[in-house]
């Protein structure tokens, strides 16, 4: 499943991607403990699964999708993803578990950019809003700079 990206290089995929892009596939389901992702052994087209999500429930709150890493993503900076950088800046909420067995790794932008460190954090990445979780808001906000994140973490202790 090799495709060519916008700059002629091999297309990488976002492991926290869109549900409705033509190429979107399901990466995992947030049915694990504390909402952690349980991964699919093989990719399933998102279109085949979206009907299983009840109306009124945002699909990305219960499923993780993979779709192409695109240049117009708000988290994109050149060829890098700033979201994974912010995710890794955040102290782990709990001890990282085993590296998940996922079908995306060889094409994953996060793995390509940061290696297995991103994989260890991947199961905990969610689209869930935690009321009062300022750090989660900072991580999710594309406008947050690394300096702001580091400063907040340092002050919070």
């Amino acid at each position: 499943m090799t495709t060519v990206g916008e700059d002629g290089s091999s297309q990488t995929w976002c492991p926290s991607g869109e549900a409705h892009a033509p190429e979107s596939v399901v990466l995992g389901v947030r049915s694990g403990q504390d909402g952690r992702v349980v991964y699919l052994a093989d990719p399933v087209p998102a279109a085949d699964v979206l009907g299983e999500v009840p109306q009124g429930v945002e699909p990305r709150r219960v499923l993780r999708f993979a779709s192409h890493c695109v240049s117009d993503c708000v988290n994109r900076r050149g060829g890098d993803c700033t979201l994974v950088e912010r995710v890794l800046s955040r102290p782990a909420a709990q001890e990282d578990g085993p590296v998940p067995r996922c079908h995306l790794r060889a094409r994953c932008q996060w793995w390509k950019q940061t290696g297995v460190a991103a994989c260890a954090r991947c199961p905990a990445v969610s689209t869930r809003h935690h009321a009062g979780d300022v750090l989660a808001d900072l991580v999710a906000d594309p406008a947050t700079t690394q300096e702001q994140l580091d400063e907040w973490i340092a002050v919070a202790g």
Partner: peptide, 21 residues
């Protein structure tokens, strides 16, 4: 969480569980 979803039935059950959670 070393288990993986390997069947359509398992996927459906997992989605139901995730929605409930």
């Amino acid at each position: 969480p070393a288990e993986r979803i390997t069947s359509a039935a398992q996927l459906k059950d997992s989605i139901r569980l995730a929605v409930a959670q």
